[in-house]
Amino acid sequence: MSTLFTKIVKGEVPAYKVAENSQFLAFLDIRPNVKGHTLCIPKKEVDKIWDLEEDVYQELMRFSRRVSIALEKTVSCKRIGMAVVGLEVPHTHVHLIPLNSMKDMDFSNHYEMTDEEFKSLAEAIQANVEL
């Protein structure tokens, strides 16, 4: 059965996309810790990051780095944190989280945004992504 993220890749479930290429997709987390919380995923469904083939893992990190640079240009923060937790959806995903304090990495936090705010932010990050 397809994961939620595979359904996003296939266009069956909407997402606020910020970057995409033939292998990877980045989109805003709909339950963000903070404004700008972004997920980077391989389009191919693989449960655990360590099960990715070495070259795919390296490319996912490159892709995540580029998205992180764009995110830092777009959202006011001290730095971008990265986490690979992976318990919510059995599909490899990298969390990119704008940080102003360590509390921003607390996954019990939920930053509320309207649909319009999500769309506007996604477009702003897209404008800064250099793939």
Score class of each variant (00 low, 15 high):
19 A>N: 03
96 L>T: 11
67 V>R: 01
1 M>C: 08
18 V>N: 00
4 L>P: 03
88 E>D: 13
83 A>T: 06
107 F>K: 02
113 M>W: 00
60 L>K: 01
82 M>K: 10
103 K>D: 15
123 E>V: 12
119 K>L: 14
48 K>V: 09
91 H>Q: 10
27 F>H: 09
47 D>E: 14
59 E>V: 11
88 E>G: 12
71 L>P: 02
72 E>A: 14
126 Q>C: 06
103 K>S: 08
93 H>W: 03
18 V>Y: 00
5 F>C: 02
62 R>W: 14
98 P>L: 04
36 G>A: 07
9 V>N: 02
12 E>T: 14
4 L>S: 10
15 A>Y: 02
96 L>I: 11
116 E>S: 08
117 E>Y: 08
38 T>I: 03
94 V>W: 00
116 E>M: 10
64 S>E: 02
75 V>R: 00
68 S>D: 13
59 E>F: 06
1 M>T: 15
57 Y>N: 12
70 A>G: 05
15 A>V: 06
42 P>F: 09
118 F>K: 03
104 D>G: 05
61 M>T: 10
3 T>Q: 05
100 N>H: 13
21 N>K: 05
20 E>L: 08
19 A>T: 07
61 M>D: 12
96 L>F: 12
33 N>R: 08
4 L>C: 13
127 A>W: 09
32 P>T: 10
118 F>H: 02
119 K>T: 14
127 A>K: 15
73 K>R: 09
22 S>Q: 14
11 G>F: 08
63 F>W: 06
93 H>V: 04
